[in-house]
């Protein structure tokens, strides 16, 4: 029987796709092994694990004190999302879990990404890699996937570990809603880390020296975590001047503008989203007038509503991540492979 030509073509294509997938997973596996073997990442992982356990401990002692004060505390605990407090409270000696994550997450992302391309280039392995039958974008994609895999595994195991320890220590199992909230929080963390990871990769494509790209990534991180808020505060003080504002509407508008400016910072987006997810009592992220709050019954927001509230932030974060990745992808594809 004669085989139709297009059928054969399709089979060949499938064959090619299969072998390419194999090659892709080979690179991912190698990058992943490199990450978990490198001292840089091991040290960061240990620091993150230790601080998280430390903050868990302080949260636990605070909660335990609160529970032991009243008899029907267990009942109250269920209503007030006590389990989530594991992640957000502290007795003041150590910052809570979410603060640690928002601080160390970017550092992990940067550490995973800052020398992705330029170290290969400087060691001369990029030319050798490119001389193999591997599409060029596999290199950058595989590095991204491997780094994302490292942070996903780390954060999910850490989050689940904290949950299980919480159950053991407090003795109150989380409700389904609490569990889902924590899972969403972990996904959010990964999106946040992915942003910094991609920023690192972008700088690693752009800058020839690993030190330059590390320093610029850290500079961006420090800018957003320290100076950006200060600058916006400064602008806000003169912009939202109570003396020049005549109506409530104007006041709200100006306040909104300032908030939107703040939201350009990925750090702010992340902290807004985490507090919404882990503190269900947060009902809105914008300004509220007294009129709006009068008559409102203080109560937790349902999970779906919380999710709805953070949805734009999450998509914004992912969009920023994708933009960084797209820019580095295009830069890398157009770059000369040769080193000199």
């Amino acid at each position: 029987m004669r085989q139709l030509p297009f059928l054969k073509k399709k089979e060949e294509l499938e064959e090619q796709v299969r072998s390419n997938n194999g090659v892709f997973s080979v690179i991912v596996r190698k990058e992943f092994t490199d990450f978990i073997k490198s001292w840089r990442i091991i040290i960061l992982l240990v620091i993150i694990a230790l601080t998280c356990l430390g903050s868990l401990y302080t949260a636990f002692t605070t909660i335990k004190d609160a529970i032991s004060q009243s008899e029907d505390a267990t009942g109250i605990a269920k209503d007030s999302y006590l389990f989530l407090k594991l992640f957000t409270t502290s007795d003041g000696t150590l910052p809570p879990f979410i603060t640690f994550v928002s601080f160390l997450g970017p550092l992990l992302g940067i550490a995973l990404g800052f020398d992705a391309i330029n170290s290969e280039r400087n060691k001369g392995t990029l030319t050798r890699l490119m001389a193999q039958p591997v599409p060029r974008d596999y290199v950058i994609n595989a590095k991204f996937v491997a780094a994302l895999l490292v942070s996903t595994i780390l954060f999910f195991s850490l989050g689940l570990l904290v949950m299980s320890l919480g159950i053991l220590l407090i003795g109150i199992p989380p409700t389904l809603e609490e569990f889902l909230r924590v899972l969403c929080f972990l996904v959010l963390c990964i999106a946040y880390i992915a942003f910094w990871l991609n920023l690192g990769i972008l700088f690693s494509v752009r800058f020839k020296q690993a030190a330059t790209s590390a320093l610029s990534s850290i500079a961006v991180w420090i800018f957003f975590s320290l100076f950006y808020n200060m600058i916006i505060d400064f602008i806000g003080k003169s912009y939202v001047n109570p003396e020049s504002i005549s109506s409530t509407e104007e006041m709200i508008n100006k306040q909104e503008t300032i908030l939107n400016l703040l939201r350009l910072s990925p750090n702010y987006l992340f902290s807004e989203s985490t507090s919404t997810l882990l503190s269900p009592s947060v009902r809105t992220l914008g300004p509220l007038t007294m009129e709006q709050t009068v008559g409102a019954i203080a109560g937790p927001l349902p999970f779906g509503q919380s999710l709805l509230l953070i949805w734009p932030r999450l998509t914004g974060l992912i969009a920023a991540t994708l933009i960084c990745f797209a820019v580095s992808y295009v830069l890398f594809m157009r770059q000369e492979i040769r080193t000199n």
């Binding site: 490199d34 073997k37 060691k123 001369g124 392995t125 030319t127 050798r128 001389a131 193999q132 039958p133 591997v134 599409p135 080193t339 000199n340």
Partner: peptide
């Protein structure tokens, strides 16, 4: 290029290997 690179071995001048 992929098909060509299956048949051609290339030794660059600034040859580098994964040190570890």
């Amino acid at each position: 290029p992929i098909e060509v690179k299956k048949l051609v071995g290339y030794l660059p001048d600034d040859l580098g290997f994964y040190q570890n």
